[in-house]
Design a protein around this nucleic acid. Structure first.
Lengths: 354, 354
DNA sequence: CACCTCATCTAGAACGTTATAGTAGAACGA
DNA sequence: TCGTTCTACTATAACGTTCTAGATGAGGTG
């Protein structure tokens, strides 16, 4: 009962069984809550276990059990929208009797490692938020465990998709900006992220539809405030600053607004900036960001439902659930300045160099 | 080789051993990279394993091994500061050869459940961010597994503390506001959160030191934007609005600023608002929040170091590492309006009812 | 030649659960 | 009396590793 370092090692079912005068099998029955024990014995076992401080060893259980009822979720811990979705996923999973295992994607812990960890914990399905993996990496992963991708497309068996129509979301934003008189509308993309590619295509298509293809401009960006700041710095270095910038997501938009403001460019008077996701902070007075809403709770709930459906029927055809995004007009976008419309299509350099 | 749902089950060491014509023990030796196999055999085993697509089963390995090299982290997925710390923890753990298991604290998944999950996964130590548990709950948990508490105090064996001096941080904020001429400084606390109590005490002590105890006012709040909004609504309902509000944390401050702004109260002209944590968003131009910095990366690194030290030496005395916070003066705090100083010590109701 | 050492390998018992197959005994009917 | 059918329980074999305690044979030493 002691480990190599002298600390008494955790009590096991054997200890509980011994102390309660029953077999380990009976203890297992009690802890799994399955029929096969009298109420009296059940209570006694539970009491003894509590007294000994017994906690079931999930690793041992997972090894033996065919089903773990674990759902693995890979998330970016710095992304507010991911946080909102995890909250929803947690709630939905709970209702369905599943437990969530989280793995964080950070600089030092790439998504592939996160997925590996979740696989090792024997999750029955993986829900990947804003997945960055290549199709071939996903193919390998999805051979071992069913995958639900949130927000991104891919054509693979055993990979279900839950996303909102990014193409349409970008169209809503560009239409909105064009409606405000903007023509020099730039897009700061999300780097080599697959979702970024989809939003980039949506932007280009919308610009083309308005006959603005010639002034379309995609600036390399990313999903963080720092990415937005860097992208804005490069836009500021141009001869003419666009009158509107649509960012890959809300975090990126915040970074852009920050860099523009600090360079003396007023938002939205000199330059409108839009985000994507309608993160919880977007509606705050200080942020007040025009963006596209993709109901986190609906995405979350749908993802959990999809994951469970696939677990129950592994051979079903892969699904692709598309939700409709909604434009959220707020204060970070405004009319293009009269002197800019149809003129040189941008804020003159002098303004951005205060 | 097939599981109940027809999906071919993963190959095991037995399969590899059989195919390579060696024993499972030898395969284990090869995969752990320990001496005991010739280079030739090593290469053959590895080749066969790759061909079969063999991946070692970590749950089985963890069960047999005494050490899991897992560190459990309980976090609030909606808290940006927690996200920053997790990023740092992940990196530090990686360097030390530990893996991080995350458990999210949400509405539907209380901290005690999160801690339980981490314990069941046999984490060797738990790092709790902004822990909310009662002392007696913590005592029970810490009997089973060593705990590192971030940000909060508690006197228990086997519980190490890493925190910054909240008392001093609040003093810095109040001193700063008093220096700007404020006297009617309210505090929106963090609810029944233990960290909140400490900050509340810090606020009261600082007010007392400035002879402002009579005008000190603590308003019930919480750690989210919504909590801040609700608290601000209650402040707005007062006869006289304080000229400055110090919030429990940055999220709460954001909510307060939002509600004040939407009620027509200008920040900081009519009312200064300060936060706590120096979350990454605080420095953005749109937010521009005066706050107190508690270096997330340093807290994270220290916590991991502390956790590992305790794993290696379980009988050491509990440690209490206190880091010094730093005041970050930004645009959300400004001088008290001349007509308010020494007068009725607050913004008159008319202003707050635009 | 007998004896030792060393590298390489293997058998088999754990680890803490779960699940299958079964037993003991009570209650019931015929 | 002898089944039969319950309920409440137990024995024990997995699960896929790790690890201890050997076994085997090659090479070196006196």
């Amino acid at each position: 009962m002691t480990d190599p370092r002298g600390r008494p090692s955790a009590p096991t079912m054997r200890d509980v069984a011994g102390a309660a005068g029953v077999s380990t099998a009976l203890v297992s029955i009690v802890f799994r809550g399955v029929p096969g024990a009298s109420d009296e014995t059940r209570a006694r076992v539970l009491a003894v276990a509590k007294e000994l401080g017994y906690v079931p060893n999930r690793t041992a259980s997972m090894m033996k059990r065919s089903r773990t009822r674990h759902l693995g979720v890979a998330m970016n811990v710095r992304n507010a929208f991911h946080g909102e979705m995890v909250e929803g996923i947690q709630a939905a999973a709970q209702d369905a009797g599943y437990e969530i295992v989280l793995s964080g994607i950070t600089q030092s812990h790439p998504e592939l490692r996160a997925v590996e960890t979740l696989t090792e914990f024997r999750c029955e399905s993986l829900i990947l938020l804003g997945c960055d993996l290549s199709t071939s990496e996903l193919r390998v992963v999805s051979k071992r465990v069913p995958v639900v991708l949130i927000g991104r497309r891919v054509r693979l068996d055993a990979v279900d998709i839950v996303r909102s129509a990014d193409h349409r979301g970008m169209a809503l934003l560009v239409d909105h900006l064009v409606g405000l008189g903007h023509t020099a509308i730039a897009h700061v993309d999300g780097g080599d992220h697959p979702i970024a590619a989809e939003r980039g295509r949506g932007y280009r298509a919308a610009m083309r539809r308005h006959g603005l293809a010639p002034v379309a401009r995609v600036q390399a960006g990313g999903g963080t405030e720092q990415d937005g700041q860097r992208a804005a710095a490069r836009l500021l270095a141009l001869d003419v600053l666009p009158t509107a910038v649509s960012a890959f997501n809300d975090h990126c938009a915040l970074g852009i607004i920050d860099a523009l403001t600090k360079a003396g460019v007023r938002v939205p008077e000199d330059c409108s900036v839009t985000g994507y996701d309608n993160s919880s902070f977007a509606e705050l007075a200080t942020v007040n960001l025009t963006t596209v809403s993709q109901e986190a709770s609906v995405l979350a709930e749908t993802a959990v439902r999809t994951a469970i459906a696939r677990i129950e029927n592994p051979d079903a055809d892969p699904t692709d659930t598309v939700l409709q995004p909604r434009l959220m007009v707020r204060g970070s976008s405004g009319p293009a300045r009269a002197d800019q419309v149809g003129a040189d299509q941008g804020v003159r350099r002098s303004i951005s160099k205060v």
